[in-house]
Design a protein around this nucleic acid. Sequence first.
DNA 1: ATATATACATAGACGCCTTAGGTAAGGAGA
DNA 2: TCTCCTTACCTAAGGCGTCTATGTATATAT
Lengths: 111, 111
Amino acid sequence: MDSRLLWGMVDMLILDVVSRGPTYGYQIAQTVLSQSSGYFELKEGSLYPALHRMERQKLLTSYWEETQEGRRRKFYKITLAGQRALDEKRDEWARFSAGVNGVLGGAYGLA
Amino acid sequence: MDSRLLWGMVDMLILDVVSRGPTYGYQIAQTVLSQSSGYFELKEGSLYPALHRMERQKLLTSYWEETQEGRRRKFYKITLAGQRALDEKRDEWARFSAGVNGVLGGAYGLA
DNA sequence: ATATATACATAGACGCCTTAGGTAAGGAGA
DNA sequence: TCTCCTTACCTAAGGCGTCTATGTATATAT
């Protein structure tokens, strides 16, 4: 896929996944990959900086957990501000995709 | 709007408008603005570099015309390669928006 | 032993969009 | 006349998110 399309979408996708309950980076990437039917491959170089950025912005909080097998995972929870940001981003996405489809459909005369 | 969302979309929107028939920069911006219900304000700093870039890539060709009032306009026509690129970008957009909606819809369990 | 999957992290490069500025002509209104 | 807005083109510099590449570390499978 054209990765330039991802600009500004990574945050929304991450927030959306985290909004369903605490989860960690690797799992977020797997979820996004699976629910986009393999389309969105969140690269580590985008994923982790985005998580850190959103934590700085207080949209997420984090805590470490250790599994019984000895692997460490950094879990993220969405904050109230994060939930609000997600809602805004969803609205923004709706307007954006309607805008694109409006232009693309323009050839066939809709309005 | 969040302008980062525009990444990679400007070319598709321009190609789409030009594909309907020869037109010029200012008019393209007006068309996109109108058909996105005022949502997409193509800035000159994005529009003209994009037109030049796509002309370099042989997706568009251009010619100058002078109006009776003395204004000069640079008209653009889409090439065969441009039409193919547009078709690809439309497919890409369809997959992309389906992917986003797949992730966003994931909370309500679709697959 | 080696490879793969899990799991985190960072540095530097890249490229498009933005802001801001420039040129130039026409028409409207004071 | 002077000012302002619209039309119409163009470019330079800055910002910033994503990518590639790299590093660390453990567990499991071959």
